[in-house]
Amino acid sequence: MSRPTKRPHADHTAVAHALRQQPGVWLPVGDYNSRVSADNIAYRIRTGYPLGNTDGSTPYQPAGAYETRTELTEDGTRVHARYTGGAA
């Protein structure tokens, strides 16, 4: 069995900023080796839950202001998000 492909870390601050600049537009957040990891990140984006940073913060605020979807790829799962313009 081969090792999973190492992927670059998503720059969530840059992604959140880009999403806020283009409300309603779906943009890729990042690619994840497992569906579980992708679903976890998608949940954290939608709910504004901390991403695991040492300071416990998230750039995806306010909670409910982002929507997410996942897409299976050849090598894993891709997360897409869009900014809805405010809390749901």
Results as ranks from 00 to 15, higher is better:
K6P: 02
P59I: 08
G85L: 04
V15W: 00
V79Q: 06
G56H: 13
L72I: 12
E71P: 11
G48S: 08
L27Q: 15
A88V: 10
N33A: 11
A87L: 08
D75A: 14
P23I: 10
V25L: 09
E71I: 07
G48Q: 04
P8I: 08
R69Q: 11
I41Q: 02
Y66I: 00
Q22N: 15
T73F: 02
G52I: 07
E71Y: 07
G86K: 01
P62G: 06
L27C: 12
D39L: 14
T77H: 05
V36E: 15
S37G: 14
Y32N: 10
G24N: 06
T5R: 13
S34E: 13
R7C: 09
E71A: 12
A65V: 01
L19I: 02
A65P: 06
N40H: 14
S2Y: 13
A63L: 04
T68W: 02
L19A: 05
G48I: 03
M1R: 14
A10L: 11
S34G: 10
T54Q: 13
E67A: 06
P8K: 10
L19R: 04
Q21T: 10
R69H: 02
S2R: 15
G76M: 05
D11S: 03
R35M: 10
G56V: 10
G48A: 03
V29H: 05
P23F: 13
V25P: 02
A63E: 05
A81S: 09
Y66H: 08
P23M: 13
P50Q: 06
H17R: 14
R35I: 13
Y49N: 10
V15L: 01
N53I: 01
Y49S: 06
I45N: 03
V15S: 07
A88D: 13
L19P: 04
S37T: 15
G30L: 04
T70Y: 00
R35V: 11
N53V: 02
H80G: 07
A38K: 00
T70R: 01
S2L: 13
D55K: 01
R69M: 08
T68D: 04
V29W: 06
R82E: 04
T77M: 00
Q22C: 07
R82L: 05
V25Y: 07
Y32W: 12
S34W: 09
L19C: 03
R46K: 11
T47A: 03
N53G: 12
V79H: 08
A42K: 10
H12N: 09
R7I: 07
G85A: 05
P4I: 09
I45R: 01
Q61T: 14
A65I: 03
P8E: 09
T70N: 03
H9A: 15
Q61W: 10
S34P: 09
N33M: 04
R44I: 00
S34K: 10
A38H: 00
Q22G: 05
